[in-house]
């Protein structure tokens, strides 16, 4: 087990470093930009205010609220302390709600949508790709162009296409929202059903996009493995085909896990934009309102949360990878 523990600790250390760097970037990037963020907010708030002292008062109030008059290192430590306490300050566009409340209300929608969708898309895509590589002929001839087509539609394009077909024209599913607009979240069956119905389109649009890219990757990976020397040798030894297939797909699967880890950021971005198109009450829509409202604290908290989610997903995939990669396993048994 020592080998795996070392692997785990190394990955954990790397995870900690990336979290810290992401945190610092999230803090410094906006402050590196030319111009005073508070001045920008005040300019937006004070639109139509003709009274100069009034504008000045608003400016001072916000300066104090964001503590921009203090030195940067001090601000940074205040920021860390507040974030660790779960305090992101007040949201400007949704005042008097705090940023923490707004994020807490939306982040679970995003997690419940994106996590299952990406996993399901990944599994379906890999299965289809592996089948295409093994069966070839007719199945492959259909699957390859379809996957190529799917993977070339931009994620937001897929969302719009599904929406127009199934919600606008066929009217099978609702066009937007996470539940019926006249409902208040509660635990009745009616509400749950409404959530399930609204879940379908965003879910499948993310799944379809994921399938396309994964199927192509798995197909070429599996074809490569099927032609490898060890397969020929195993056939020569008379090992059953079903057994060989299992080895082949396990070997082809490993790079696919790495691929998933490396592309998780892009996938989440695609899914965030898809959320906006379906007006799904997740982080994506929150970000949109934050951008429209010039809501500085909210956007910074939203990006921080998304970064954190992506980092955790990445870390989890590396841990899984360590468990199933025979090379790392071999190192453990030494």
């Amino acid at each position: 087990m020592k080998g795996y523990r070392d692997y785990f600790l190394r990955k954990l250390g790397w995870f900690a470093i990336t979290v810290v760097v992401a945190f610092i970037l999230n803090f410094t990037l906006p402050r590196l930009m030319p111009g005073d963020p508070v001045a920008a907010i005040v300019a937006r708030m004070a639109q139509g205010m003709s009274n100069a002292t009034g504008v000045q008062a608003v400016y001072e109030q916000y300066t104090e609220l964001f503590a921009t008059d203090r030195p940067i290192p001090e601000q940074f430590f205040i920021y860390i302390r507040n974030v660790l306490n779960g305090d992101f300050g007040y949201s400007i566009s949704q005042y008097p709600r705090t940023v923490g409340e707004v994020i807490n209300a939306s982040v679970w929608w995003t997690i419940a949508l994106q996590f299952p969708a990406i996993i399901v898309g990944w599994i379906l895509g890999n299965t289809l790709g592996a089948m295409a590589a093994y069966l070839r002929k007719g199945f492959d001839r259909v699957l390859l162009p379809v996957s190529l087509f799917l993977s070339n539609i931009p994620p937001f394009g897929m969302a719009v296409i599904l929406l127009v077909i199934f919600a606008v024209n066929l009217k099978w599913l609702p066009t937007s929202g996470g539940y019926r607009f006249d409902m208040v979240p509660n635990s009745s069956w009616e509400f749950v059903w409404s959530v399930i119905v609204h879940y379908q389109l965003p879910f499948w649009s993310i799944v379809l996009i994921t399938i396309g890219g994964q199927a192509i990757g798995m197909r070429s990976m599996a074809i490569y493995e099927l032609n490898a020397d060890y397969v020929k040798y195993a056939r020569f030894l008379g090992i059953k085909d079903s057994k060989i297939i299992r080895y082949v797909f396990r070997n082809a699967m490993l790079p696919q896990i790495t691929g998933l880890a490396l592309s998780i950021g892009t996938m989440v971005f695609g899914a965030v934009v898809a959320e906006i198109i379906f007006n799904y009450p997740g982080i994506g829509s929150t970000m949109l309102t934050a951008v429209l409202g010039g809501d500085y604290p909210l956007i910074s908290a939203a990006t921080l949360i998304i970064t954190f989610m992506v980092l955790i997903a990445f870390f989890a995939l590396e841990i899984i990878y360590g468990l199933i990669d025979p090379r790392i396993k071999a190192a453990q048994s030494e």
Binding site: L29, G35, T266, S300, V310, L311
Partner: peptide, 17 residues
């Protein structure tokens, strides 16, 4: 490679104004 680039994109574009 780990920190999602789109987050940086969003932060920078938002800050530029």
């Amino acid at each position: 490679t780990v920190i999602p680039t789109f987050v940086l994109l969003i932060l920078i574009s938002f800050s530029i104004g």
